[in-house]
Amino acid sequence: MGRDAPDRLSLRSLTNRILLSAGLILGGIGVAVAAGVANVSMLPGAVCGAGIACGNFFLIRKILEKAFSGGGAVNKGFVVQYTLKFLGLIGVVYLVVRYGGFDLLGFLLGLSSLFLGVLLEALARSFEPNA
């Protein structure tokens, strides 16, 4: 437990930074909308994309945590769960793109919040004294 604690904390901080980056992207779009550079319709698309990216990350984390929690043995349901998650993700993206009516650039920006979150996490780690 003692050895696991720092890793769990870093996973939690990564999750928090992904959420923070999603907030940053939404804030950036909000500023761009206020400045008249971007269209207002980008905002709901970005919210939807960020939600999908974060949900996908949480599901991957949950499925893999459950799969590798059994010591040396890997849970056999892992493959089925992962495949179902991926199919669900494809279905959600299809529904959003086809029937959602969101701005696609905003949607892709929202999906990119994961990348920005990982970048923020790496930058934060590089500035830590023990890194």
Partner: peptide, 27 residues
């Protein structure tokens, strides 16, 4: 645990890239 976290992040990033291509293909 040290291997697990970067693996999750890598898998999520790879999947995001595929989803980008999927969105563009839908468009």
């Amino acid at each position: 645990n040290k291997i697990f976290i970067p693996m999750i992040v890598g898998l999520a990033l790879i999947e995001s890239l595929v989803i980008y291509a999927l969105v563009i293909a839908f468009v």
